[in-house]
Write a protein that binds this DNA or RNA. Structure first.
Lengths: 124, 124
DNA sequence: AATAATACATCAGATTCTTATGTATATAAA
DNA sequence: TTTATATACATAAGAATCTGATGTATTATT
């Protein structure tokens, strides 16, 4: 019999609320900077960079990685470390182009939101 | 027989790509500024403010308005103008609170994305 | 007379996410 | 030593949010 103990006040965890489409942009950008990363490493990197503000769930991450690979934006290399599998992903040429597109799309989006909801938002 | 003429180069239109959750924030903020608006007016206002960059589709807008109303964030008043119906929406008290929450959520989100993808992004 | 604009609405389908669950190994704690 | 945590992958159900298509109806424009 398996009993999972769950925190009583788990409301204090929650609060993720990733905006649609953000995840691909995040993955691509991280790979642009770090060249080669595996899935679990990405979740940890995001947590660290955002000081826990953003937790990429595995249920979102792995399917996203598979799709980016299927679309030809990432290539994968499987490596065994300490008897455990790691799948290292890196950008393809098309992936590098896609990264630039996604980033400018994000910039445009933020510019647009700035106009709509808050004159204080801006890009430097 | 109905034949719909469509633009040959409709690729130049496309490009909407609203991020998930943005729409509610936009609606709430516009109502905070303008006090009372009807659906069609919102679509036109968004087009005008963003110079066509963002087009709120009716298929997204109307269900969103209904849900915001059902959740108690908006109240509606139906008015007949030129023999046509208009449904004027305005913020309830809870809606005003929700607006503030959504706006700070957006600020946090942009701050987070800034850390992750682009050191040039910032709030003033 | 036909088309575009105004004004509402719903629905199928796609995408993207959360939460839960599952497998398996390695390490740290009780 | 057993248990829990960390590492590392994966899938699947269901919710939420969007696009694009379609529908109704009136008014204004061409």
């Amino acid at each position: 019999m398996y009993i999972k103990l769950i925190p009583i006040f788990n409301g204090i965890m929650a609060k993720n609320n990733l905006y649609k489409g953000s995840l691909n942009t995040i993955i691509l950008k991280l790979l642009q900077e770090t060249d080669s990363m595996y899935g679990y490493e990405i979740t940890q990197k995001v947590k660290a960079l955002t000081q826990g503000e953003l937790s990429i769930t595995e249920g979102a991450l792995y399917p996203a990685l598979h799709k980016l690979e299927a679309d030809g934006f990432l290539e994968v290399e499987v490596v065994k470390v300490d008897n455990r599998l790691r799948k290292y992903y890196k950008l393809t040429e098309r992936g590098t182009k896609e990264t630039a597109d996604k980033l400018s799309e994000l910039e445009r989006y933020i510019e647009t939101m700035k106009v709509l909801v808050n004159p204080k938002f801006s890009l430097e």
